[in-house]
Amino acid sequence: MSTPAIEAGQLSVSYGGRRVLDQVSFAIPPGSFVAVLGGNGAGKTSLFRAILGLTTPEQGYVRVEGQSFGKGRMPVGYMPQMRRMVAGQLNGWHMVAAALQGRAWGLPWCSASARAEVNAALDAVDAQDLAMRPVMSLSGGERQRLLLAQALLDHPRILLLDEPLASLDPARMRETTRRIYDLARERGLTVLFSTHDINPLMGFMDHVLYLAHGKALLGSVDEVMTTPALSALYGAPVEVVRADDRLFVVADGGADTLHCCDCAEHTR
C-alpha cells in the first residue's frame, strides 16, 4: 500500500478558543482529487494550516507523504483565500514571481530560469494575458487564476486550495474546477479543494472529506453524501437530496434550505 499523501491521526486543533477539529483521523491516497466540504467555521482552513505546519495541533499528528516536514519545506502548493491579498498596483506577473524562492534572503532579481518557471505557471492556468495588468484591476476570478499559478511554482506534489471557487459565477466555477482537475491529472498531483458547494466538483472528485462539528468523514461521494452518513456526522437528522444531478444537504426538510450542500450548518 502506498504512503498516503496526507495522513491525520487523532488530530485536534483549536481556533479562537474553540476546538474546530476534534480527534480527526483520515488518510488521503496520493494522486486523488478531494473535495473538502463544510460550512463556515467547520475547520477547513484550520485543517489546511495544520497540514502546512502553521498551526500546532493540540493533540495528534498530521503527516505529508509520511513525513513531518519543517515549516515551508514540504512539497505543497497553497492557494489561500483572497481576503489577505494585497491587491496593489504591481502587475500580476510580479505578484506571481514574488513567491518563487520568496523565503530566500536577497534582492528580488529574477533569473532567466526563474522567469521561465513563472511564465510556465502562468501558461498552465492560461493567465499570460492577466500578467501584464495591475492586480488591483483584476476581477476576483482573474486573481484566483494568478493565485493558482503561484501555487504551482516550485513543482509541488500536493495542492491545498482554500475556497478557489469563492466569488465566481456558476459557469466560472465549473471551468475553474475543470482547469484544476486537468492540471492535477496531467501532473499527478494530490488536490485538497475546499468549498461550500459540492456541485461544481461533481464528476471530478475522487473523494469527499466532510467536516462538521469537529469531526471528519472521508470517502467516495456515494459513501459520504448519504442521509445516514451525514446524519451520523452532524449528530442530528439531515437529508441528502439528489435533484437534476445536483446534491443538496437539507436539515429539517425546509424547502428554502435547498440551496447548497452545507445547509445543515445554517439551519440547525
Binding site: 502546512l52 502553521l54 519543517g70 515549516k71 515551508g72 519545506r73 505543497v76 497553497y78 492557494m79 489561500p80 483565500q81 489577505r84 491579498m85 494585497v86 496593489g88 504591481l90 505578484m95 514574488a98 513567491a99 524562492q101 520568496g102 523565503r103 530566500a104 534572503w105 536577497g106 534582492l107 528580488p108 503561484q150 501555487a151
Partner: peptide, 23 residues
Amino acid sequence: LGVMSRPLLFASLQPDVAEAKGV
C-alpha cells in the same frame, strides 16, 4: 533592505502563502 527585500516582497503581497513557505 536589500538583504530582506525578497522575503519582504513576498510577505507584503501574499502573507498567507509566505507564512506557509516558512517566511
